[in-house]
Amino acid sequence: MRKVNIVFLVGLCVGALAALVVVVATPQRHVVTALGPAPVAAAGTDRSTAEVRDSPAATTSGTTTGSAAAGTAKTKPAGAGKDNTAQALASLVPDGHVSVVVYDRQDKTTVLSVDADRTYTSASLVKLMIAFQALDNGADPARVTEMLERSDDNTASDLWVTYGWGSIVDNAVRRMGLTGTHPPASPGHWGDTQITADDITKIYRYLVEEAPERDRTIILAALHHPTVHGADGIRQFFGIPDAVGPGNFAVKQGWSCCEPDHSIMLHTSGLVYDDRFIVTVLTQQPAAADYTKASAQLTAVVKNLVPLLKK
């Protein structure tokens, strides 16, 4: 009997270890978005400070600090000045938070910056960092393409584990000069990586300005050809794709929900209009909004930015 008990206990231990490996290496999935690890509560401020500079579309002036969840603000054109811009964008996500950066690569100018330093969990935007690390270390380009085009979580998990876990984020921070980005507190939950709109914009600038040509070619090709639906079945054409239309974008999207803070993280980022403008829009919305409503609100934010993107 003693021998039987020992064998039984050993079997339990081995099984527990195997289960632990599965949990760490595979992102948790959720009902609303079926994507990525459970987001941790986003750190950062609640301010919504907008900075608008000269752009080909509009010249604005003024300074302001508004509420990030200004549900009573009236929607106005995005180029109507710093006060109106921050309030207008916040009003489109009345129960949540929105951060925006628009950068004009041609004029080398930040056209718009709204609460750009607020921290969010990354969801799938961290896959941009994974892509660089994987390609630099000899990964099959087809796997990186699959991860980016279909936002494939299983591929992301494999590459995350194979090429360094949280050190992937640390390397991106050093390489790209990121200031508000940090690895996830739980190493296996890659989607809990902490990001800001300012830092995501820096990642795109690195991609088009400094990255090795081979990496740039592979990643840009994938971003120019995202599938309509992600590997998990979620439609990933919210935000930039729906706002600017076919042929005008190269994007990486992010979505996750809902524990432990009952929030939907919904992000859209990429290059638009012949890759001239870098657009980053990050949102945190209550899970009660549901995916359909949250997607519509994010798309409305980007549509409000389109006047700034006209050449």
Rank of each mutant, 00 (worst) to 15 (best):
D107T: 02
S99F: 06
T63W: 03
Y103N: 10
G96Y: 06
S61E: 14
G62E: 15
G66S: 12
A68M: 09
Y103A: 14
K76G: 04
V100E: 13
S91Q: 09
T60K: 11
D83E: 06
V111R: 12
V114I: 08
T109E: 15
A88N: 04
G81W: 04
A86G: 02
A73K: 00
Y103G: 15
V114G: 05
D107N: 02
V111P: 13
S61N: 12
K74S: 12
P77N: 08
L89D: 05
V98K: 01
T110V: 14
A90C: 08
Q106L: 13
T64L: 11
S91H: 06
T75C: 03
D115F: 00
T63I: 03
A116E: 11
G62P: 12
T59G: 06
V111G: 13
K82A: 15
V100Y: 14
D95T: 15
T110W: 12
A116F: 06
N84W: 04
G71N: 04
N84H: 05
T75K: 14
V114W: 01
A70V: 00
D104S: 05
L89C: 01
A69I: 00
A73E: 05
P94D: 03
K74W: 07
V93D: 11
D115P: 01
Y103M: 13
T65C: 04
N84L: 08
D104H: 09
D107C: 02
S91E: 07
S99K: 11
P77H: 10
S67L: 13
G79H: 12
Q106P: 02
T60D: 09
D95M: 11
A70L: 00
V98L: 02
K82F: 09
G79E: 10
A68V: 08
S91L: 08
L92M: 00
K76H: 08
K76D: 01
T110N: 10
P94V: 02
A116M: 12
V114A: 06
D107F: 01
D107H: 05
T65K: 07
D83R: 06
V98W: 02
A70P: 00
D83Y: 09
T72D: 07
V114S: 01
L112M: 06
A116N: 08
D83H: 07
A78H: 07
D95F: 11
T75L: 14
S113V: 04
T63L: 05
G96Q: 07
A90Y: 09
G66V: 14
G71H: 03
S61L: 13
T59D: 03
A69N: 15
R105W: 10
G62Q: 13
A69E: 15
Y103R: 12
A68R: 05
A78V: 10
A88W: 00
G62W: 13
L92Q: 00
V98H: 00
Q87V: 06
T65W: 00
D115Y: 02
V100I: 14
K74H: 14
S67D: 13
G81P: 02
A78T: 06
Y103L: 15
